[in-house]
């Protein structure tokens, strides 16, 4: 994983075959933690914006870092919790929208069926 000592980094993900910038990480923030914690391939691309200096942490160094700087673990957990909360909220919103849409779609379908054509 990487901690940004100076500068900022754009996080880019491929969505439906198109590269999109999903977030910007700034000084003091970190990225690449999912790949480190789960030993899985990286899920996004990170691109430095201008001069950027990173602190690189591997798995062995990670434990050493936590021992020397335990508040880093607290900050990491808080950031991960915050991201999890956002994803959870997005999921809830999507489910609510789907539930709201269902009766409307049903009504529209019924109307189309009643008129017997595809006219608007």
């Amino acid at each position: 994983m990487f901690i940004i000592q100076q500068g900022e980094v754009a996080i880019i993900a491929t969505i439906n075959g198109v590269e999109k910038e999903i977030e910007t990480r700034r000084r003091g923030e970190f990225f690449g933690e999912m790949a480190l914690l789960e030993s899985l391939p990286r899920s996004a691309t990170a691109v430095a914006r201008g001069d950027t200096r990173l602190l690189v942490i591997q798995c062995g160094g990670f434990l050493q870092k936590l021992r020397r700087d335990p508040t880093f673990a607290f900050e990491m957990l808080q950031r991960l919790s915050s991201r999890f909360r956002k994803v959870h909220q997005q999921l809830m919103t999507m489910m609510e929208e789907r539930d709201r849409e269902t009766p409307e779609r049903q009504c529209a379908g019924m109307l189309i069926e009643f008129r017997g054509d595809d006219a608007p």
């Binding site: 901690i3 100076q6 000084r27 003091g28 700087d69």
Partner: peptide, 12 residues
């Protein structure tokens, strides 16, 4: 002071 250096390395 070593702990302070460790924290400073994180962009403080």
């Amino acid at each position: 002071s070593q702990a302070a250096r460790e924290i400073l390395r994180r962009g403080f």
